[in-house]
Design a binder for these strands. Structure first.
Lengths: 136, 136
DNA sequence: ATATGTGCAAATGCTTTGCAACGCC
DNA sequence: GGCGTTGCAAAGCATTTGCACATAT
């Protein structure tokens, strides 16, 4: 009863896989994890289910800097910096520090709809800094 | 003297093309605009130059929801919502409203490096809402 | 029974790369 | 002249799609 109309083994397996981890993972990684867990699911099916789950807002999805889509269970809204029209790509600059509070008012003021905010910070965590340094 | 070591006609053409607009554009769109303007440049060259310019921080680059890279002249830093390691994809949640001011402190606290923040809001602008409605 | 979901493989679309030709410095 | 840069076409990747088959309800 989450996304599609029917409950299939594959769909449940995708949901289960999402519940197996708190981290953002790519569709490919999730599929790989499922296969390694013994699930028999097609990659396309994983893509299709993740897509519809994300569309339903049932799971979080964000875009990695390299353009890969990453998925994770749960959902929380956020914000961004540029106000960009998804259709024409024209953008309106958002100043900065007052953004959090003004986000809603701003969006309303500009009359944008179908807002999609996602604020992520990408960087290298301490653990990886060490790991990467060790490999040098 | 911006990115590479040599000043070529093509490299300058890409920079000029970027200065022709304030909007975020995909590499393909920028290349198309250049060709229509009469420039003779290969698509790969446009990709290569945009890439290195972005890497040098000479231009802004952001990822569209569909995974396309968008470029624009100038640069301004911003922020996000999830603190995600670019290497292992592990993430740390950022609460929300106090983010702006706490971003710097937070990043420092978690010891992340090579931070890349980009906060954009995607939606449909009023103009496009009208256009799209008219097409129905 | 029948519409929906799945699997596979082919197709897409953006981006990168190999390599020879080219042209700054 | 030498090395960075370009062009073109081929390769790469993540993701989507067409279509026949399987299956929830």
């Amino acid at each position: 009863m989450s996304t599609g109309k029917r409950n299939t083994r594959q769909k449940q397996a995708v949901i289960d896989a999402l519940n197996d981890s708190d981290e953002f993972r790519s569709a490919q990684k999730i599929h790989l994890d499922m296969v390694e867990k013994g699930e028999k699911v097609g990659l396309a099916t994983v893509y299709r289910n993740l897509r519809s789950l994300a569309q339903d807002g049932a799971i979080d999805m964000l875009m990695a800097p390299d353009g890969e889509s990453l998925y994770r269970r749960c959902d929380l809204d956020t914000h961004h910096h540029h106000l960009v029209c998804r259709n024409c790509l024209r953008s309106i600059e958002v100043t900065g520090s007052e953004m959090e509070e003004l986000l809603h008012a701003l969006v309303e003021k500009h009359g944008f709809t179908e807002i999609e905010h996602s604020l992520e910070i990408f960087g290298i965590c301490p653990q990886c800094q060490a790991d990467l340094a060790a490999k040098e």
